[in-house]
Each structure stands twice: as C-alpha cells, then as structure tokens.
Design a protein around this nucleic acid. Sequence first.
DNA 1: GTTTAATTTAAACGAGTGTTTTAAATTAAT
DNA 2: ATTAATTTAAAACACTCGTTTAAATTAAAC
Lengths: 213, 213
Amino acid sequence: MASRSDTKTRILDAAEKLFAERGFSETSLRLITSKAEVNLASVNYHFGSKKELIRAVLARYLDVFMPAASTEIKRLDAVPTQATLEEILSSLVAPLLDLNQLRTEGTTIFLQLLGRGYIESQGHLRWFITTHYGQHLDAFVRAVSASAPHIPPAEMFWRLHFTLGTIVFTMASADALNDIAAAEFGEHNDIEAVIRKVIPYMAAGVSVPVSPQ
Amino acid sequence: MASRSDTKTRILDAAEKLFAERGFSETSLRLITSKAEVNLASVNYHFGSKKELIRAVLARYLDVFMPAASTEIKRLDAVPTQATLEEILSSLVAPLLDLNQLRTEGTTIFLQLLGRGYIESQGHLRWFITTHYGQHLDAFVRAVSASAPHIPPAEMFWRLHFTLGTIVFTMASADALNDIAAAEFGEHNDIEAVIRKVIPYMAAGVSVPVSPQ
DNA sequence: GTTTAATTTAAACGAGTGTTTTAAATTAAT
DNA sequence: ATTAATTTAAAACACTCGTTTAAATTAAAC
C-alpha cells in the first residue's frame, strides 16, 4: 500500500505510461490513480492539478535529457572542424538511449510524450518547454544551422519542425511499425535501430538545398 | 433559422472547421451545433453519432481527393520516363489545392483533419481510410517505390512512415507553426507554401542512399 | 384540407470529468 | 508520550460530455 514517499513516483510512473500511449486529455486522473494504486485525491494534493502533473511528467525527463544533450552539443562545438548534420543528430542518440536506464522504455515514452505535448497542448506545454529549456534548444538549433549554412533561418525553422514531426510520429507508432516490419520483412529492430534509420532521413531533409523558384 | 434541408451541411461545415483546429475529442457536439446554429439533437438525428459525423466530415473530402490523386498518379505512370520522387509528390499538390474551391480553406482543413485522424484515432479512422481508399494508397506506394529503386522494400516501408509522420504532424500544427513563423521571421505562409516547403524535405529523406554499416 | 411523414426543438438522462472538502490515519518533531 | 505536520481516504461537488426521449413544428402526400 504505497509507502508514503513514493506515492508521487507511483503517480508519475503510471501517468507517463498512460499519457504516452493515449494522450493527455484522453487519460483521466481516475485511470492514472487506479493503475498507480493510489487515491484519486493524491494527484491534486501532490501536484495541484492535472496540468501540473503533465508538466511534472515531462520535466522528469527533460531535466535529465536536456543537460545531457547540451553537453554533447558543446562537445561537438569544441572540435575545430565543423560537425556534419548526421554527427549532430547522432550525438543525441546516447542521451536518448540513456533514458532507458532511467526508466523502463524511457526513450520511447519520452519521445512520445514530447509529441503528444506538441500536438495536444493549446500552448501551455510549448511555453513550459521553451521557457525552461530554451537555452538548450537554442544551442541545438545553432549547431544544426551552422552545419547547414546554406539554409536560411526561416527555412531551418520549418525543417526542424518537420523533423520533430518525423521523430515524434515514428516513436509514437514504433511498436506497431516494428511488428509489421518483423512480419513483412523479417526485420527485428529495437528502438535504437529505428532511431538509426530515421537519422539519415532527417539529415537529408534538413540539409537539402532550397529549391529556387 | 436554418432552412431544414441544409442542416446537415451546416453541421458538417461547422464541424470540419472546429475538428481541424482543435481536434476531434476536444470538440464537443454542443460547440458544433451552436456554431452551426442548429439544435444539439440534430447531429444524432442526421448522423447517428459523433463517430459517424467525424467519418462523414472526412469522407466529404476523401471522396473528392482520392480519385483526383489516383488520376494524377496514373497520368505519371503512363509517361514512359520514370517520374522523380518530387514529381510524384508534387503531382498531389493540384488535387490538394483544388479542395480550396470545394470549400473555403478546404486544403488546410483536409490536411489538418487527416493529421488529427491519424494521431487521435484509436483505430476506427485508420480502418475507415484504408478499407475505403486502400487501392489509391497502394498505387501511390508503388509509384514512389519505382521512383527510388535503390531503396530496399523494408527501408522504403520505414521511410514512407517517416514521411507520413512528417506531413501529418506538420499539418496538424500548421496553424501554430504559421503563427510562430509570422512572429519570428515575418513570414506569412499559406498552406500551399507549407506544402511546397515540405515536399523537398520528404523527397530528400525518402531517396537518400542507405548508409552502409 | 386532412393525414402522414420528416424534421426540429427543449429537456432530461446517465456516465464521466477535474477538483474540493472533510475526516481519518500515518509519520515526524517536540 | 504528546503534539504537530504530512499524507491518505472516501465522498461529494459542480460541470461537461454524448445520447435519448417525447412533444412541437414543418413539409409532403393524398
């Protein structure tokens, strides 16, 4: 019966799993608390509201991932030769996969949550992410832009969001896609294999020359 | 007071707009009927349920777009020279933009609805689309595969789903992204501009050589 | 013009939502 | 051991949701 101090953790663990697989507004607090085997009211006691629970779920990952990602970006910045786009994107793979040892299926869940947040939210999550982790995002955007100097900033803005869509959608349906790929082509990919497949796709799209018209 | 016979149309028009901009489950029947200035119960009278209303909203576009898209693909297939990937993707732009003369902002609404459908649905929309329009989708996949013969089928499977994610996510958040782009870069893009931006991105990603490793 | 059918209306239903309240139980501090 | 603070528990609140019902209205058929 949930020794007191881990009630918060039990809620977060249950919430992130449910949020990731069915979305925020499709997941009721009653479903979360029943899966977590805690009382309904404890959500509002520990987090204040559902909105703040959503932010807490995301923050638990972002607080680990963002600094780790920034470290990788800085490491690449320190090297005198300009990093390629593939190198930049690949440098985030380790921080992403490290989330798996933070929590079971951490990588998948984190990326799915990110996608849900961007799609569902009316702004409060976007605001939360950009104000709390904006510096890390800026460093990433700068690194990517430097690796593809022929892409104007406005164009880069769009392509980075295309990229976000690519990775987010892929991760959201990675399990289903892996099942199909296994049945259809005899492929047996784990999450890392999928990430390694998607990186060349994204890198090619981001850096393709802007068509003159 | 809504001359009787166009009550269905008033509902569909109001519903598609609201569905596109806030998603299916975030849009209540009460909001739809108040915008349409019809009675709440008329939705269930004319469509049976909310689910069927959603399908009706999508079908109104798919029934026009899918045959038009298939015609374009067939036209490319008839030409002796192999079409490029960009040509194939670009051939869908005209059918997409034609939706604008079907209804105000038809193109935007249709693509956003598609995105919402793929992201939100628990399956019933995916099922609806693939069973009703699967033949058109198959022709498209065959054409794309022929344009990039250096991509093995298994890899193409993944890349087409990456592409689906790209377009679906982009369209679902097109309004929000356009707002940011306008504030940040002074860009004022319509939906066609976004489509023209995303096509080279997707074409480059789908056809990039598979990295040997 | 009366009858019949189709449509619209207002009201209520039942289920589900996030949140708050009140009280009990548990833990920590004095 | 007693007091205070924290945590859990059960219940209710106020609200929204999709759907249904039954009466009123409109249009069509005869």
